[in-house]
C-alpha cells in the first residue's frame, strides 16, 4: 500500500472516473473524502462498497461551482482527519453545442465547474499543503479535448486548456514546498458523461481511431492518478499525462 495513512479529496467522486479514483486511492491505504453534487444514491452506495471492503471513503455533498464549497469541504476533512495529502480535481460537466448556439449559461456552467471549481479546491488546500505540511499532490483531471478539438466543445476545451495552464503555473509556484501538481488527460472513457459523444460517433467508429482498439475504462485513469499521488512520482510536476490509448496520436490508418 503506497498511500497508507494519507488523506485524499476527490471531487466528482460518486460516479465515472471519480468513483474509480476513490476506490483505487482507498485500496492503496488512503482515507478518501469524495465530493458529489446530486447523486446521493451513488454516493451512499460507494461509501457502503468501500466500507464492506474495509476501505475508508466518506461522502461530502457540495457543488464545486459554489465558490464556498472548497473551503467548506477542506475544513470538514481537516476536522475529520487533520491533513490533506492528495487533491484530485475530477468534477466536470459538458454542455456541448456549436458555438453559434452556445449561450452564456452554457459557457458559465462549464467554466464554473471545470475551471472555477478547480481553482477553489486548489486554493482551499494550498495553505495547508504549502505552509503547514510542506508536501502534497494535486492531480487535475483534464481532457485530450483541450488540445485535440471536437466541434461543439468550445466551452469544455477552453475549461480544460485553462486547467492545463493552471497546473503548470501551480507546479512552478509550489514545487519548492514539495507540492507536486499534475494533470491527467483522458481520451474516450466509458462513463455516463461520454455516452452522448460515444453514441453520436458510434463506438465502432471511435475504436478505429484508437490504436489500442478499445475505449478506456475509469480504472485506466485511476491507476495513473494513484501513480501520480504516490512515491513513484516524486520527481514529476507540471505535466499533463495523456491517457487515451493513443487516440491523440491522430493515426489515420
Amino acid at each position: 500500500m503506497t498511500l497508507k495513512d494519507q488523506v485524499a479529496i476527490v471531487t466528482g467522486g460518486s460516479r465515472g472516473i471519480g468513483r474509480a479514483v476513490v476506490l483505487a486511492l482507498a485500496r492503496e491505504g488512503a482515507r478518501v473524502a469524495f465530493v458529489y453534487k446530486g447523486s446521493t444514491e451513488a454516493a451512499q452506495a460507494l461509501e457502503a462498497e468501500a466500507a464492506a471492503a474495509g476501505l475508508v471513503a466518506k461522502a461530502h455533498q457540495a457543488d464545486v461551482a459554489d465558490p464556498a464549497a472548497g473551503d467548506r469541504v477542506v475544513a470538514a476533512v481537516l476536522a475529520d482527519w487533520g491533513r490533506v495529502d492528495i487533491l484530485v480535481n475530477n468534477a466536470g460537466v459538458i454542455r456541448d453545442k456549436l458555438f453559434v448556439q452556445l449561450e452564456a449559461d452554457d459557457w458559465n456552467t462549464v467554466i464554473g465547474t471545470n475551471l472555477n471549481g478547480v481553482f477553489a479546491f486548489c486554493k482551499a488546500v494550498s495553505k495547508q499543503m504549502v505552509f503547514k505540511q510542506r508536501s502534497g499532490r494535486i492531480i487535475n483531471v483534464s481532457s485530450i479535448a483541450a488540445d485535440h478539438v471536437n466541434k461543439g466543445q468550445s466551452n469544455y476545451a477552453a475549461s480544460k486548456g485553462a486547467v492545463n495552464s493552471l497546473t503548470r503555473v501551480l507546479a512552478a509556484e509550489l514545487g519548492s514546498r514539495n507540492v507536486l501538481v499534475n494533470a491527467v488527460a483522458p481520451g474516450f472513457i466509458e462513463t455516463d458523461m461520454s455516452a452522448a459523444v460515444r453514441n453520436m460517433a458510434g463506438e465502432d467508429g471511435l475504436k478505429k481511431l484508437i490504436p489500442v482498439k478499445r475505449l478506456g475504462k475509469p480504472e485506466d485513469i485511476a491507476s495513473v492518478v494513484v501513480f501520480l499521488a504516490g512515491p513513484a512520482a516524486a520527481y514529476i510536476t507540471g505535466q499533463v499525462i495523456t491517457v487515451d490509448g493513443g487516440l491523440s496520436l491522430g493515426a489515420i490508418s
Partner: peptide, 11 residues
C-alpha cells in the same frame, strides 16, 4: 527564499 517563502515569512 522563493516567492512563496516571502508569504510564509509574513504569515
Amino acid at each position: 527564499a522563493e516567492s512563496i517563502d516571502f508569504l510564509d515569512i509574513v504569515f
